[in-house]
Amino acid sequence: MASGLIALLDDIAGIAKLAASSLDDVTGAAAKASSKAAGVVIDDAAVTPRYVVGLTPDRELPIIWKIALGSLRNKLLFLLPAAIAISAFAPWALTPLLMMGGSYLCFEAAEKLFEAMSGQHDEPIEDLAEIADPTALEDRQVSGAIRTDFILSGEIMAIALSSVSTVPLWEQALVLAVVSVLITAGVYGAVAFIVKMDDIGLHMAQQPSSFNQTVGRGLVNTMPVLMRALSVIGTAAMLWVGGGIIVHGLEVFGLAAIPDTLHHLAAAAGAVTGPLHAVTEWLVTALGSGIVGLIVGGVIVAVLHKFKH
């Protein structure tokens, strides 16, 4: 009896160790997948704050909460099952889908650059002040943000899936669920801080302490600079990530001329810089991927504008 109990305890200990090891694997894979999706995450954080424009300050955080819940619902109820189904029944489709998503990212970034340089916008900006009903305004902003989030979340999930496509399906599902929760919390936590940063700064600027006043004015003045910086970083990150996805896809399909050229350029630059070779190789690869992304996105923008005219 005692030996049977000891054997049972040994089995339980072994199972516990296996579970802990699996949890470590899931956590590591989720961190890796989240880092790969960084470009889309930055753009998501840069885009979302505009959906609270025109709303009263007391409604900003509740609206962001609604958008965050909608984003999590997008990921967990729709995109995660779709991703697992693709992985289980059509894994061959993952690379083409990723390349389509990467092309979309390149298009979005190139479109932003085109609009910035030409001053043109595809659609007129609606005057939100014309919507008199506050509830209707909130519903409009929330639904628009959730629709935009669905596209960005789809690309995030596809990138995450590509990072764990070789592990068992249950582990893929766990990793994607963890990525969904972590990225949603990170993005919308950052968005909430960005949106309320000017209110926090204004409150601090009204305090009697000179230190609080200085910090408060600094926060208020930093807000527009931060938004512009996020927009620039998000655009660059989309070109880098989208171009990198396309380059990798070309390599998978045996079209290795561009991937090999980037690899050789990065290796040559790294050899010149000695101790900084790893950083240099990464920078050259990222720059090359960004150039590829800009070319792909520019071609798509040109074609769409040609058809539009």
Rank of each mutant, 00 (worst) to 15 (best):
S87T: 07
A177E: 07
G274V: 03
I125P: 12
G243P: 05
Y51P: 00
D44C: 02
K36Y: 12
I200W: 12
G189H: 02
S103P: 07
L294E: 03
H248V: 12
L239I: 02
I131D: 08
P224L: 09
S103L: 13
G274S: 00
E130W: 03
A158D: 08
I86R: 06
L105D: 07
H203R: 15
I84Q: 01
A173P: 00
A268S: 12
L265W: 09
H305E: 02
G242F: 05
T95L: 13
V167N: 06
A116R: 14
V215D: 05
I12G: 03
F150V: 07
L128V: 13
L137T: 08
N221R: 14
L18P: 07
S34R: 02
E171A: 11
K196I: 13
V26I: 04
G54E: 00
L128H: 11
A269I: 05
D199P: 04
G274N: 01
L137H: 01
L72W: 03
A302N: 08
T285W: 06
F307C: 14
V179Y: 00
V178K: 04
V272C: 07
S34K: 00
L105R: 10
I86V: 13
P124V: 06
L105G: 01
L18R: 14
L250M: 15
H264V: 14
V284C: 07
G186P: 01
P168L: 03
V26Y: 04
